[in-house]
Design a protein around this nucleic acid. Sequence first.
DNA 1: GGAGTTTGCTTTCCGCTCGCAATCAAAGTC
DNA 2: GACTTTGATTGCGAGCGGAAAGCAAACTCC
Lengths: 378, 378
Amino acid sequence: MTDLREANRGAVLSDLLLHRPTTRTAIAQRTGLSAATISRAVEVLVADGVVREVSEVVSANRGRRAVALDLVGERSVVAGVDLGASATRVVLVDFAGSELRRWEQPTRSDLPAADLADWLAGMLTDRSADLGAGLAAVSVGLPGAVAESGAVSNAPNLPQVMDPGFVTGLRRAGGVGVRVDNDVNYALLGEQRRGAAAHAGDAAMVTIGAGLGAALAIDGRILHGRHGLIGEFGQLPAGPMGTRLEHMVTGPGILRRAEEAGVPLARPQDLFAEEHRLSPLRTQFDHALQIVLTAVAVASEPEVVVLGGGIADSLAGDLDRYQATLGATLQVAPRLVPAELGAFSGAIGAAIDAVHSLYADLGAEPGLGGGHGRSAAS
Amino acid sequence: MTDLREANRGAVLSDLLLHRPTTRTAIAQRTGLSAATISRAVEVLVADGVVREVSEVVSANRGRRAVALDLVGERSVVAGVDLGASATRVVLVDFAGSELRRWEQPTRSDLPAADLADWLAGMLTDRSADLGAGLAAVSVGLPGAVAESGAVSNAPNLPQVMDPGFVTGLRRAGGVGVRVDNDVNYALLGEQRRGAAAHAGDAAMVTIGAGLGAALAIDGRILHGRHGLIGEFGQLPAGPMGTRLEHMVTGPGILRRAEEAGVPLARPQDLFAEEHRLSPLRTQFDHALQIVLTAVAVASEPEVVVLGGGIADSLAGDLDRYQATLGATLQVAPRLVPAELGAFSGAIGAAIDAVHSLYADLGAEPGLGGGHGRSAAS
DNA sequence: GGAGTTTGCTTTCCGCTCGCAATCAAAGTC
DNA sequence: GACTTTGATTGCGAGCGGAAAGCAAACTCC
């Protein structure tokens, strides 16, 4: 369409982002382009310093050894952030997407929007300075709905981020491109590329923690919606008396409902102890979760549903049971699996998005997925 | 990628399918291709007898009048069928998609699969013979989930169609390409192209009749899922005691629940009479429908949700109320509108799909939508 | 009613890209 | 050391689309 040459360069980069060390021949096979075209495209990318030949010879049948190609990672550092209601998780990666550092810290949820942005930006610049490299891009996952325009809504657990000043402040303080998206969307991206949803074109993720969130991907692409509302299954008024599900299957919701029922819990996780196994509260939770899982399944027909978030960890032992119930409801039920990247799937997904954004200028479409995340309005 | 020339020809055809009588210049503007390229492509299409110049000059600013282009319709006849549990609706259209004839008939649900196929095929060939033209393609909407493979499942209200012999029998008897898809998917396609969802990239449809069905479209494309389960929100176990919603908001479901409650109804529609306005049964129905609408909204974030099906007609007066409740639940709620094409949206959508399938060989992607329907395994 | 203008369509020409096929390169095999 | 296999590069030819010029058909203004 536009420039064929550039499109092909982009195709090579996209392929390289997905299959990290690879060879010219392999790229040619996967893209369907001729070896000549790939050779020419790679030549330009190497000259531009984006790609380099690495010595590691992958394997050998016979004949001449293929030269491995890889992205040049040292150009700068990129950050992926999962700004949760209680914990903030960060991953620093290089331009090739290789992880350099990760850490976790309590979120300064006491701060107003502008200060929260400064706090986060400061942490990122400090830590990346330790590595002797400036930040080139940042993607931040937020516990709320992120619209195409960059506006954030539906973030009751960290309301500051709905203030437009948060993102603008973050960009100003960081001095780099900042992309934001829903935290679950990033978590799913992470699990798609590096975790439990690898090789699944259609996948979904459900996180249960301070809030209830879901993300849906079809043909590798994460669905967003103009206002970022896709996946907000917590809004379903399917609980007793029309209660919203987010009031039943989240940490705070569990605590409140336990209190109302006269059996207060110290921590939400306690609901999943053996002693409460048959309690009405637990039964209601199971039922509500079942509705969410069914809704996710019929909304996008995923091959696999990844479960994440603080509460989900407590459910690991019950996964088979949920799976069985789901199978009884639907003829073809998705596989239910825990997040392979654990609490860091969101941060890792954000980092992947940030890396992709860097190569987007060069014509790379983010692999199978298209347009994950969105740079907030400037 | 493959053949550029062919791709451009396809782009012209696709544009023509969406904007029916149009001009070369208009096509050039919409596709972004140069006028020269369009001229060359049109030349071929006219020579092939697929497209022709029509005299009707669209309008005039000044200068030379643009020559209107249109598809050549008289080449043959194409059928769209909505095979419902109780009624079968058929639309015959020409190659340009212009309606030639439509009719409705009780479905011979008493017949086994093979005979049902023969009955339908016979009706189609008879009626199209009246028009002096053979059938070139048929698309049939079924009240069930249609998988990529063409297998039909989840069709409790017309179980015959799940028999693989139905589709193969239909193809054999008709002697033409037969495509099948879920009836609601076709209905949404119809409403997108000719009805209430025109100009809405993101749209959804919910039909309530003998069954409960939903279809979702994002960026003009209708979501299918490998097993065709997308949109089966009737499976949600969100009713009292975990009842599936399809047992609450369908005609048969309403009758059964009314009977169980000791207030039998003559017809499901009676539930919506003034006298039952505040009955528990009506309240439960409203609540269940609200769950479905919310689920649809957060599954695909449509701009508009089209309501169709026999029961939906009775809801017309209550639409504002549902709209208000939905608005209270979601910050950004879709518009709720009745099906503009009435009971024929499914048949019309099927006809549109059938027409598209004819031009697919020539490289036309079905406009905004991609791969609606699927030709069943042969 | 003729010159000028605007708009639509066609044609000429030119640059560009890709793929094929030949060639060079580097490894293993016999 | 010749042969084979696999990988990468290069020369060449065909095909494509776009810019721009040219032709056509309408309107407008004097």
